[in-house]
Design a binder for these strands. Structure first.
Length: 196
DNA sequence: TCGCTGATCATCT
DNA sequence: GATGATCAGCGAA
C-alpha cells in the first residue's frame, strides 16, 4: 500500500457523527459517543482480518455492520470510507430524542431516560436493531438512516476506546463533553498495562 | 461510587 | 476450545 490510509478523515467523520441522529422507525437517537475502527491497520477492529463476518466492512460505505457480542448483545457500526478500506465507527451511546415510548418498551419501564441508549448494546436495543439489519443501507430513508448534524459542532472530548484488548491506548473514542449518557471508561482486563 | 461476576453464543483458530 | 468493541446485579466501602 503506497496510499496513506485515511485515518485523519475517519476520525473527522466520527466527530461529525456526534450530535447527529440515527433514526429507526419511530425512534430517533442523538449520538453522544462513538469509537473509530481503522480496518486492517487496527488490531482492535474486526476488519483487522478479512473474514466472512467482517466482509460487510470491506464493501461500500454508509452501511450498517451489526455483530453479536458476548452471546447476548447486538452492537452496530457505520461503515465508512472508500470500498476496501474497511473503516467503521461504532455507535456507543446517545439520547433518545423521539419515540420515547417505543424505546422504553424495548428497554424496560424502569430504565431512566438518560440510560435508554447508553452503551452500544443498549443503543441497538432502544432502536430495535438486530442481526437482520446487518448490511442495511443507511441512505435509504425508509429504513434505518442517519441524519447528519447541521448545527455547530458540540464540544468534543477524545480518549481511549472502551473494553478493547489491543491498541488500548489509541484515543479514538469521541464523546460530547459532559454528557450524562456517555459510558464510564472501562479498560479491557486483557489489555497490557498502560505505558508510562 | 467502585469493582467483581455471571450470562451465553457467533466467530475464529 | 477460547475469546470477546457488554450489561446488570450484587456486595463492599
Amino acid at each position: 500500500m503506497t496510499d496513506e490510509y485515511p485515518v485523519g478523515s475517519l476520525l473527522e467523520f466520527a466527530r461529525s457523527l456526534l450530535g447527529s441522529r440515527i433514526v429507526s422507525g419511530d425512534v430517533a437517537v442523538r449520538l453522544t459517543e462513538v469509537e473509530a475502527y481503522a480496518g486492517p491497520l487496527d488490531p482492535a477492529s474486526h476488519a483487522y482480518n478479512r473474514t466472512p463476518r467482517s466482509e460487510i466492512m470491506f464493501g461500500p460505505p454508509m452501511r450498517l455492520y451489526v455483530y453479536f457480542s458476548y452471546g447476548i448483545h447486538w452492537c452496530a457500526n457505520i461503515v465508512w470510507g472508500e470500498e476496501g478500506t474497511a473503516c467503521a465507527v461504532l455507535m456507543r451511546a446517545g439520547q433518545v430524542v423521539s419515540g420515547l415510548d417505543e424505546a422504553r418498551r424495548r428497554r424496560g419501564a424502569a430504565v431512566p431516560e438518560k440510560r435508554l441508549a447508553s452503551g452500544p448494546a443498549n443503543l441497538t436495543k432502544a432502536l430495535g436493531i438486530g442481526g437482520t439489519d446487518n448490511g442495511a443501507d443507511l441512505s435509504d430513508a425508509e429504513g434505518i438512516h442517519l441524519e447528519l448534524r447541521t448545527d455547530p459542532a458540540p464540544i468534543i472530548v477524545a480518549g481511549p476506546r472502551v473494553g478493547v484488548s489491543k491498541a488500548a491506548d489509541v484515543p479514538w473514542r469521541f464523546w460530547i463533553a459532559g454528557d450524562r449518557s456517555v459510558s464510564a471508561y472501562k479498560r479491557s482486563p486483557r489489555a497490557p498495562a498502560p505505558s508510562d
